[in-house]
Design a protein around this nucleic acid. Sequence first.
DNA 1: CTGAAAGCGCTAACAG
DNA 2: CTGTTAGCGCTTTCAG
Lengths: 350, 350
Amino acid sequence: MTNGTKPATIADVAARAGVSVPTVSRVLTGAARVSPAKRELVEAAIAELHYRPSAAARVLVSRKAQVIAVIAGDTSRYGYAEAIRGIEEDARAAGYTVMITVVETADDDEVDRAISATLTQPLAGAVVLKFDAPGVAALSRLPADVPVVALSGVRDTAVPQAVLDETRAAEELTDYLLGLGHPTVHHVRIPPSRREDGRTTGWRRALRKADAAIPPTFDSTWDPRDAVDVGTQIAKDPAVTAVFCGNDEIAMGVIRGIADAGLRVPEDVSVVGFDNHPLSGLWSPPLTTAEQDFAGLGRRGLQLLLKEIDGEESKRYSSERPPLVIRSSAAAPNPQRVSAAASGHVAESA
Amino acid sequence: MTNGTKPATIADVAARAGVSVPTVSRVLTGAARVSPAKRELVEAAIAELHYRPSAAARVLVSRKAQVIAVIAGDTSRYGYAEAIRGIEEDARAAGYTVMITVVETADDDEVDRAISATLTQPLAGAVVLKFDAPGVAALSRLPADVPVVALSGVRDTAVPQAVLDETRAAEELTDYLLGLGHPTVHHVRIPPSRREDGRTTGWRRALRKADAAIPPTFDSTWDPRDAVDVGTQIAKDPAVTAVFCGNDEIAMGVIRGIADAGLRVPEDVSVVGFDNHPLSGLWSPPLTTAEQDFAGLGRRGLQLLLKEIDGEESKRYSSERPPLVIRSSAAAPNPQRVSAAASGHVAESA
DNA sequence: CTGAAAGCGCTAACAG
DNA sequence: CTGTTAGCGCTTTCAG
């Protein structure tokens, strides 16, 4: 099916234009001056031959790659997809191309297998989405000689990183719930990237600061459908009056479960999410959450990487504090439920 | 930052192992037999030197690329992100690496600019997500010599393609609504990829088949928040008893708008979506929709591409029919509303 | 300003 | 089975 015509080479262009190969190279790269006359000839030849320089050959000799690898645990999850979009946009603007590598597990051998193909490519640098365990593992397996930046929710690694301060935002969100009058706040965790996520840490910190009880956490997968069960479970426990969920999708699942159990949000239980997912404002009730600008995070990360590639040592961190988005899924606690919890009775408002 | 150690080359490995360069190449590629003794020596040297073959050099001489480009109009939209995930998984399994190229507009010059960087890379092939105008444009700008497959909702192009038969599914969904007793079905379009999308065509076909009136369509952007306005607008028109939305996210926005206007779904107006978005089952009411296996579509597309790369001419199409997912956002029409519409009065059930 | 010459790191013939 | 000899398509000296 591919027609036999071999793509034109720089030599073909040179011959067509009646100049030497290096001259063509010079108009291509702009590395040196070329007389307007020859430049025109070359440009004409390039157009006529539909010539495209071979990146492989170019990289081989110039040792300058134009590919940036993005290493992520999943490409389809909301925050990741957004971050990738941000990275790609800025990378394209800077003349780079983006290569995607998915690392599914945190197992060292698996990670090595996944990234090895990518590493043989001539890479200018890599951006690692370090929000989950595979990301953390990938970061540790990357050779020291490739410029890298991590995108994260917590400032922690030695490599340059762009962060969205989750700890701070989670703390504020919990403060907000406490300020509404809730005796304490329960927490549904997303699968953690390390021993403990920034979201969980911030929640714990707020509780400690307020001298509130620190209840055991609920765990959820990334699938919001699994969070529905957590919600029904929560509805059964009268001690729960406020819930901070690890992300909006989980919050939606939890709210669904609570509603299925016959309780109302926020009248009986307050629920807040995290991320400000595009659908969170359309949910009933509209979700109170913390805005996470993932696309912006990706862009900030890429800028950091670009500096690193250029050998600039300056800024190694770029941090941003996610603003709270107050909508209506959280309210003051239901006095009935609070007293029922205190007396140990199960109150079913169904 | 990067330490000065240059990466080991095949020559370094050969020297370290005490063999010739081609012998190292042979153990690397497995192209020819190498005595166990030398093979071991070479493998040891590779390990000690942390040697990684340069893909650039390899491609330059072998003319076999290991990169597959995915060209899409947006990487973060649900269906696209899922398709990319499917492509990436299978590509990785087949030893390929995936490069992402985003094409934001359908303007030829813009498209050329976006894909030119990618095309200079040594590409084994390309997968084009042809669900929107930029995708369609990109497909037309690709040189004839790169193996390509399109992912689409309608079987139409000359290039091999994997399709999810949207027309058929949209028709069935509309049939279903009609079967519930609705006099006709209104339609909110997603931004179309061509003159008319398969989703719209299927809807029109079902209406025509049933001899139902074909009302003018509503248009929406990809942002579900914009669909809220469409919903409030719909609520004002008593003639609307059933709405088929171009995708689930738009349906969610429309439902929100209808609810904001004081009407109920499905009691006053039935609304169905398309795609079976992960949150659609958790929505209130749970969305009736058509399942779209985007990740599977991506995988089918990649398999087609792999065959094409290998020069197999066999199958050029892979089509699948999305099954309906009946939940509860659609029901029989509200008799009151229907008669009000017939008499030209505006019925506000608020 | 421009051409000739020399490789970048690797694989593809070809002898042995 | 293994080493030698040629390049792949490009950029980079280095003379002119």
